[in-house]
Amino acid sequence: MREVLLGSKKNYQNLKDQFVFYLDNVSVDYGNCSALKDITLTVNPGEIFFVTGKSGAGKTTLLNVLAGDVKPTKGRVFGVDQNVRFISQVFQDLKLFEHRTCEENIWFSYDRSLYKNKNEFRSDMLELAKVLGIQDKLGDKVKDANGGLKQKVAMLRALMARPNVLIADEPTSSLDKESSIKLFDVLNFYNIKRKLTVIWASHNRELVKTFPGKIVHLENGKLIYSGHACFI
């Protein structure tokens, strides 16, 4: 899917420091409908990157292109190998297993190559759940959970995978402003502490303007603005 730029180890080191993704004139068509039109942008390592726009502007398509789930109709996507730079996602439809508990859903992120043992994973999970205020609800079935809890579980699952890049599609659509800020604080912490690159799509432009980071604004699949929030 994504074109991998890994000529040599040295070459990779240079590229790794330069960008996470580079989109070169990317267009995506679904039949006659054009979802993205000639998008050129760069996502740098350790950056918090907001994608804003109204519903149907092409935010999800752009995120799917970055995640490698959608192939561009035109243009090229450059990214670094998934095995080296791991991408984790918070899906718009969350993709949680309704018949399982919140905790069981989070356990999908348990990777033996990252954690020494299950206890380490469990303690990390409880710690993060405490920060998000859902430690008492981990035993609840997802089908019985409210929208806010589901989104927090999806975010927790994504973070527990210890990714290098986090792609989050409308992660705060069911959350109030206070919870949204709390969630952003968590991501900001991971960004500073672990150099996590965050790509966050939201239709709530006013909310993301309050956060530090880079904003890309889309309208009808076209890139209208790209720059820091403070300059809007």
Partner: peptide
Amino acid sequence: KKSSYIMEKFQRS
């Protein structure tokens, strides 16, 4: 397929 997709998204496998 859904289960394996989620695994692949959150685990390095």
